[in-house]
């Protein structure tokens, strides 16, 4: 097809396999940076290897302490912790979702004026930056030990999570649909109900189900700082070296997480 003579041999000599990163200076910067970091990281880690080596033998004893799991001896404690975790999950998810909706609306650039937008984005940033445990420490200091602190923590985390993802979805809606609704002379709330909500609903439901799942998982650790839930039971059993009970608690957590995951997966498949 080409009119001029094409030198395939020369082209083949010049050809190199494409590198992973296109720009040469960036490529070498990344390689050097990774190498430098690896050196720094491994030279600064202090690991007590003799203690770690003992770990193998300890692990054996520890794991044998796990078997057989004992559901019975502390059955009441496990049940109470579980019930606490579940109630915390339900209440925090409910409150969190309700509160996250206005924040999500405020954090959507296509709906909210700039000051409101910045304020809502600020709430989201704070809620997402800190690990749930840190928030729980603060809430425990404020309202005392118990499931209420855990519930507030999870609700707060839910707001950041839901509002961020819903706001992204709202910003991605088809402007033409919202415009068509506005063209009918609708009010702002009607615009939300007819132009925005139908487009975001599947995501809203899917994320709610997903968050329910996450909240249960998180509720299982908040007990470590006294914020209630099955984590309390777990922590106590570790403290008392009742590893067979700890194993039972872990199994209960895995089973419920599995059930939650299956259920939330089912709900998400249904709405999509």
């Amino acid at each position: 097809m080409s009119a001029t003579h094409f030198d395939a041999a020369a082209a083949a000599r010049a050809w190199r396999p494409p590198p992973l990163i296109e720009t040469p200076w960036l490529r070498y910067a990344v390689y050097l940076g990774a190498l430098a970091y690896a050196l720094v990281a491994f030279s600064t880690i202090e690991v007590n290897w003799t203690r770690a080596a003992e770990g193998v033998e300890r692990a054996g004893r520890f794991l044998s302490g796990f078997f057989p799991p004992d559901f019975v001896t502390k059955g009441d404690d496990i049940l109470a912790g579980l019930l606490e975790s579940l109630t915390m999950t339900v209440v925090s998810t409910g409150i969190g979702i309700i509160l996250s909706i206005p924040v999500a609306l405020g954090a959507s650039r296509n709906l909210a004026p700039l000051p409101v937008y910045l304020f809502c984005r600020g709430i989201i940033a704070i809620s997402r930056t800190f690990q749930e445990i840190i928030i729980a420490i603060v809430f425990v200091a404020m309202v005392g030990f118990g499931p209420l602190a855990g519930t507030l923590t999870l609700a707060f985390a839910t707001i950041g999570f839901m509002a961020k993802l819903i706001a992204e979805d709202i910003e991605d809606i088809q402007a033409s649909q919202a415009e068509a609704v506005r063209a009918t002379g609708s009010s702002w709330f009607q615009l939300l109900a007819w132009g925005v909500l139908p487009q975001v609903r599947p995501r809203l439901i899917g994320l709610s189900a997903y968050r329910l799942d996450i909240n249960f998982r998180e509720s299982a650790v908040l007990g470590l700082v006294g914020a209630g839930g099955i984590g309390d039971t777990l922590n106590t059993s570790f403290d008392r070296y009742e590893f067979d009970t700890a194993a039972a608690v872990l199994i209960v957590i895995i089973v419920i997480v599995l059930a939650c995951e299956y259920a939330s997966g089912y709900i998400r498949r249904q709405v999509q």
């Binding site: 097809m1 080409s2 094409f6 395939a8 041999a9 082209a11 083949a12 050809w15």
Partner: peptide, 15 residues
């Protein structure tokens, strides 16, 4: 192989 690839790409006008 690489040479052949270039020859063929040239043949179809995509070198």
């Amino acid at each position: 192989d690489v040479e052949e690839a270039f020859r063929l790409l040239d043949r179809v006008g995509l070198a």
